[in-house]
Measured scan of single mutants.
Amino acid sequence: GKELVLALYDYQEKSPREVTMKKGDILTLLNSTNKDWWKVEVNDRQGFVPAAYVKKLDP
């Protein structure tokens, strides 16, 4: 199944490769191989958020 992450903080995108999220958002995790930036999908948009700003949810 899909892996989900919880947004721990608000994040405002600073480049087109990033996405904005609000604290409490549930996002689909697409790629977590980079320790600093994780690729997520939110509202049909894909992009990166700081890994420290999200937490993996237990399945």
Rank of each mutant, 00 (worst) to 15 (best):
D36N: 14
L8Q: 09
G24V: 00
W37M: 10
V5G: 09
V19Y: 03
Q12E: 15
N43V: 08
K14D: 12
E13A: 11
E3T: 04
E41M: 14
R17E: 12
R17W: 05
G24Q: 02
E41G: 09
T20A: 12
K22E: 14
V54M: 07
D10C: 03
L57Y: 09
T28V: 12
W38F: 08
L30M: 13
R17V: 09
T20S: 08
R45V: 13
A7M: 01
T28G: 10
N43P: 07
Q12M: 14
D10N: 07
L29T: 02
T33D: 10
E3I: 12
T28F: 08
Y11D: 01
G24N: 06
G1Q: 05
K14W: 03
N31W: 03
V49L: 02
A7K: 00
P59Y: 05
K14R: 11
L8I: 15
T33S: 10
N43F: 06
P50N: 01
K35E: 14
Q46P: 09
A51K: 08
I26K: 11
R45Q: 11
N31M: 10
R17T: 13
L29V: 13
V40I: 07
Q12I: 06
D25K: 03
M21L: 10
K23Y: 04
L4F: 13
D58S: 13
K2E: 13
Y11G: 01
A7L: 00
Y11E: 01
S15G: 10
A7Y: 00
F48W: 14
L57S: 06
K55E: 14
R45A: 12
S15C: 11
L8R: 10
P50M: 00
E41Y: 06
A51Y: 01
L29G: 02
M21C: 06
L27C: 14
I26E: 07
E13R: 08
D44A: 12
E18P: 05
I26Y: 12
A51E: 03
V54C: 10
L4Y: 06
N34Y: 06
L4G: 04
N34T: 12
A7H: 00
T33N: 12
R17G: 12
L57M: 12
K35M: 09
Y9C: 14
A7R: 00
N43A: 15
V42A: 15
K23T: 10
I26G: 02
G47C: 04
V54H: 00
T28E: 12
G1W: 05
A52G: 15
Q12L: 11
V5T: 03
D58E: 12
Q46N: 10
Q12G: 10
K23M: 06
K14I: 06
N31F: 04
S32F: 04
T28W: 11
F48P: 01
N31G: 11
K2G: 07
E18H: 06
L4E: 13
A52V: 11
Q46S: 14
W37R: 05
P16S: 11
V54R: 00
D44F: 10
G24W: 03
I26R: 12
K39Y: 09
V40C: 06
K35F: 07
R17S: 11
Y53L: 13
F48D: 07
K39W: 07
L29N: 02
M21K: 00
D25S: 08
M21H: 01
G47F: 06
L30H: 15
P16Q: 14
E13L: 06
L30C: 13
S15A: 10
Y53G: 12
I26T: 14
N31Y: 04
T28L: 09
K55W: 03
G1M: 13
V42E: 04
E41A: 13
Y11L: 01
D10Q: 02
